[in-house]
């Protein structure tokens, strides 16, 4: 397969997955903001989203104050913000457009109509119809992309690059959601507060893991178990371990003469998840652990780019 084609497929799937996860993160933040709390605490959660995407400067250039409405407007509909859901859907469609012949008709039509619909939605319309509905819509369109991919695409290289993009992006995003929310929630320490249940519940729901949690633990919600579920569970489709397992598998299927080192890095990271214990991870501080994890995901992404996607030297 052409390196450029692989590059477009990889980024197409990353952008659609990014849009979905961003919708999930904004959704949970918005839901949490509905639970009675101080205005300061609420605005802190919104600020964390901006910080998480390293968008402080771009945000400050447009808005003086951090509050729910501004952050939502900035992260949902802002055309200049390359990290907004709008921009992610546009980039997903642009990448798809560049390789539309490699996609099945169903996949292309899904990508294209997602973009055409997104383009028509102004922020005011989204708010009037309920932001929750919009987030549901984004998740649904992402599911549809995944579904048409699974249901119609030949499982060759193209498929593996798409899966690779999806899983790598999701690993990064789940880590981010956990990082930002865990810290907002954690300061209560051992003192249980009634709101905590709702807050943790919302976090779990944001990664579609509320029912999963009940099924796996059949017990009350505790922060440690939430972390364990989202990091180490082998069967939860949005857990870090699940994602890394898929990254390694797809990398093995795609391997070429240059890709050994990237595969080793991915395999090593997966092993830590495969054989790790949540006590050890929490002992050194979850934030530190997650930061290191995201750095390593970034390196693996670079490795994939170098090994497969960026045109190789002619002498190669």
């Amino acid at each position: 397969m052409l390196s450029r084609t692989a590059d477009h497929l990889f980024w197409m799937s990353r952008y659609i997955e990014r849009a979905e996860n961003l919708a999930r993160l904004l959704d949970v933040t918005w839901q949490m903001s509905l639970v009675p709390q101080s205005e300061e605490a609420a605005n802190q959660s919104w600020a964390a989203i901006i910080a998480l995407n390293s968008l402080e400067e771009a945000y400050a250039a447009k808005y003086d104050t951090v509050n729910g409405e501004n952050v939502l407007r900035f992260m949902v509909s802002d055309h200049d913000n390359f990290s907004s859901i709008y921009s992610c859907l546009r980039m997903a469609r642009e990448n798809a457009h560049a390789v539309r012949g490699t996609l099945t008709t169903e996949m292309w039509e899904t990508m294209n109509s997602t973009w055409l619909e997104a383009r028509e939605k102004s922020f005011e319309q989204i708010v009037n119809a309920g932001v929750g509905d919009f987030f549901e819509w984004v998740k649904l369109r992402s599911s549809l992309s995944r579904g048409t991919t699974l249901g119609t695409l030949l499982q060759d290289e193209a498929f593996h690059f798409i899966r690779l993009g999806t899983l790598l992006e999701r690993a990064d995003n789940t880590a981010r959601i956990l990082d930002v929310k865990y810290h907002v929630l954690r300061p209560h320490g051992e003192e249980e507060e009634a709101t905590d249940f709702y807050q943790w519940g919302a976090l779990l729901r944001s990664v579609s893991a509320f029912e999963v949690y009940r099924k796996v633990y059949r017990d009350v919600i505790t922060p440690e178990r939430v972390a364990e579920l989202l990091i180490l569970n082998s069967d939860m489709p949005r857990s870090l371990r699940f994602c890394l397992n898929g990254v390694v598998k797809n990398l093995e299927l795609l391997s070429n003469n240059h890709s050994g080192e990237t595969l080793r890095q991915a395999g090593q990271l997966y092993s830590q998840l495969r054989y790790g214990r949540i006590e050890d991870i929490l002992k050194d501080g979850l934030h530190e652990w997650l930061t290191d994890f995201m750095d390593r995901i970034y390196l693996i992404g670079n490795g994939i780019s170098k090994d497969f996607l960026v045109p190789m030297d002619e002498a190669a």
């Binding site: 052409l2 795609l254 003469n257």
Partner: peptide
């Protein structure tokens, strides 16, 4: 394959495309 100019290169008067598995 649908290629663009940048996906192709010429070496020894032969045309190659850059693929994920090499030229």
């Amino acid at each position: 394959e649908l290629v663009e100019g940048r996906d192709l290169f010429v070496k020894d008067e032969t045309v190659y495309m850059r693929t994920t598995q090499g030229p």
